[in-house]
Design a protein around this nucleic acid. Sequence first.
DNA 1: CATGAAAGATAGGATAGCCTAACTTTCAGG
DNA 2: CCTGAAAGTTAGGCTATCCTATCTTTCATG
Lengths: 227, 227
Amino acid sequence: MVEQLERRSLFTQSQEDYLKALYLLGGGERPVPTRELAQRLGISSPSVSEMVNRLSAQALVEHDRYRGQQLTREGRKVALELVRHHRLLEMFLVQVLGYSLDEVHDEAERLEHVISERMEQRIFELLGRPELDPHGHAIPTLTGRVRHVSHRALSECRAGEKVTVQGVSDEDPGKLRELERRGLLPGTHVAVLAGSEFEGPVEVKIKGRRAGVPLGLARAVFVAESH
Amino acid sequence: MVEQLERRSLFTQSQEDYLKALYLLGGGERPVPTRELAQRLGISSPSVSEMVNRLSAQALVEHDRYRGQQLTREGRKVALELVRHHRLLEMFLVQVLGYSLDEVHDEAERLEHVISERMEQRIFELLGRPELDPHGHAIPTLTGRVRHVSHRALSECRAGEKVTVQGVSDEDPGKLRELERRGLLPGTHVAVLAGSEFEGPVEVKIKGRRAGVPLGLARAVFVAESH
DNA sequence: CATGAAAGATAGGATAGCCTAACTTTCAGG
DNA sequence: CCTGAAAGTTAGGCTATCCTATCTTTCATG
């Protein structure tokens, strides 16, 4: 309990960034090349080498000289906490503060390093213990488990299906805004009238209104069976 | 507008701490001695001297050698933004995330440095454009104005008065919790049955229930006429 | 299996913040 | 108006992060 609440700030923001990037790139499965990590973080390779040395001295990272690095169990724990923070925060920003999907990332990126476990918990409860962030990514649990979420795109649905939008995966702010404008936000119920054939749009009914969703957009919308 | 949203992070967290402390200690009126600033920040005097040099090079602080330092107009602007962030965040943590009064300070202290102007605005609106934080301190406006709030303690009220709790000013977590337990939170309506005489408790009616508030506690409760 | 390009590591250097030790200025009392 | 304690500053050091230039290792390929 105390450990849970007081764990904060044993690591610098910089260290946390490395650990999280390592997790997101390698998933803890694959050794990540130095150059790749450097690219992701926008930092020179020598700087990464140096930091990785510090992190492996702290047993957060395992470094195979000239071959790459991956997280240790301990390092993954830290990374997962950050990812949990990030995704909870994105959900929070959307649902409580009314952010649009293209605005949440940067804010969450800064907040994830400073919120306490208490705040994490309060947000988690306030949101009704969500399992997915607004982009449809799984939110790791407090114990560091990551539920597997099988995604199906709206573009793959067939006529007659009733689905719920789980997430919207697109880095392009313009597309995100476009999806929002059309009401294709996480939580929205959609009835598929006609699937996409010959690259045409998917015909759907959103909140009672008929609409055609261009294939490009439909591919970025992840859905699940309505229940 | 863009300036408003993009102003973030021109300063380091450390610099921001100095500016805020300078504001809270000197109010922008009085030159603050180096030692005092050092004490407040928990940092050595030489370190303060050094940082103050950097800050005056950026025209955020005016430094009168051997005599003290105070904020420039620009420095005060930055400080006020931080104070605004801090107080809005405290209110937010209490009202939206259900924090108790003794838990808000540390969290707000970390968050105040990283929230965007957008988030500030959203919180401000969500809370209904509050003018006071949960401790009864004025929240500076976006333009940096600070409303003057005249405080009167519950201990100074007389029989028959109907007042509303504006804030609770006490650094002692035990006292804060005690006040919360008694329902003396910002927003609470209180009818004063009998004022404190001869150091005795203040007799009041809170939410229909009679209670005696010990003088020590009553002094930490700031109230305003109910309307 | 030799070799050169690509990837990685080391060397050397900068800056922000902090510290302690030593020096300088201020100013209250005598 | 002299002086010593208190306050303030300067000097010199340390660590974390970052960088560029240079050296080393790996590995595909001829």
